[in-house]
């Protein structure tokens, strides 16, 4: 009887362990697959020409596989989205957490959740139909499909993660800190920015890193509004991101071109790993 029970316990434990390992296995599989399939092209092309080459002409007779345009576009695009999205998201979260009346806070939070749930293809569609023509008219450029359009779309897409995580961090600031500040004669606004925000800084940093992760990994929406041409990035240039470079050529690629696409995916993967490491770092700082 006792043995039977023990056996059952052990069985359940191993089932849980196996289920838990499914996730780990997936990540390992993807990592290994990306490394194995990404390395050969880099070897053939050479690491420096691959990472720092300025032209990507994968289908030309003398093909050239330089992904610097994609790397820079991804970095500029993400940075631009952060520059626009973080101030808006951060100030919104200060408002929601500290000064908004309960009812307004409820409504705004519901809308933010809805925004988080909108599929990226819908962002792309609206961007294509509204933003791209808008940019063409406002800035008098030939084509509105550009890095700027992608930045604006990305900035909006990262708002929900920034707002939600920052609000949680600001809500968690002990009321005693704020009371102490008010009792010294500081105004509520001074109190929020000089006491509450510094006390919540690791949470807010986490929010920003999450936003970066979301922006750099986005493919569908940016493909639809950025023009998808492998130019070196410029605000009104048609550009191609790391993600969209893989997505747009995969279906018809072959040989070295196909291998090079895997290498691009590997580079993107390394960026994501870096961001995750940064996230870990900030979360650890929060606990201490």
């Amino acid at each position: 009887m006792k043995d039977e029970k023990n056996f059952f316990e052990k069985l359940v434990h191993s089932i849980f362990l196996i289920l838990g390992l499914v996730t780990v296995g997936c990540v390992l599989l993807i990592t290994i697959y990306l490394i194995i399939s990404g390395i050969p092209a880099i070897k053939k092309i050479g690491l420096v020409p691959f990472l720092f080459g300025k032209t990507w002409e994968s289908t030309a007779e003398h093909a050239s596989y330089g992904i610097l345009p994609f790397i820079l576009t991804s970095i500029y695009g993400t940075a631009g989205a952060i520059v626009i999205g973080v101030p808006i998201g951060f100030l919104t979260s200060v408002y929601l957490s500290k000064t908004a009346p309960k009812r307004i806070r409820g409504i705004v939070e519901a809308v933010v959740s809805l925004l988080a749930g909108i599929p990226s293809v819908v962002f792309g569609l609206v961007g294509m139909l509204v933003l791209v023509p808008g940019i063409r008219k406002i800035f008098h450029v030939a084509d509105g499909a550009s890095l700027l359009a992608a930045i604006v779309v990305l900035a909006i897409m990262i708002l929900p993660s920034i707002i939600k995580v920052s609000v949680t961090a600001l809500d968690a600031v002990p009321e005693e800190y704020e009371n102490a500040s008010l009792a010294l004669g500081a105004t509520p606004i001074e109190t929020y920015f000089r006491v509450s925000v510094p006390a919540a800084k690791s949470g807010i940093a986490t929010a920003v890193v999450l936003g970066i992760g979301r922006a750099i990994g986005e493919a569908m929406a940016v493909m639809m509004v950025s023009g998808n041409v492998a130019n070196m990035p410029g605000l009104f240039q048609s550009v191609r991101f790391l993600t969209t470079a893989v997505a747009s050529e995969m279906s018809y690629s072959s040989g070295l071109q196909r291998q090079a696409l895997f290498s691009i995916a590997l580079v993107l993967f390394l960026f994501i790993m870096l961001i995750n490491a940064a996230l870990k770092f900030f979360l650890k700082g929060k606990k201490e």
Partner: peptide, 19 residues
Amino acid sequence: NELRREVGMVFQKPNPFPM
């Protein structure tokens, strides 16, 4: 705010700022 500067307060639980 001026009133609270002149009439200061010390709380039950020590609440120094995290700085």
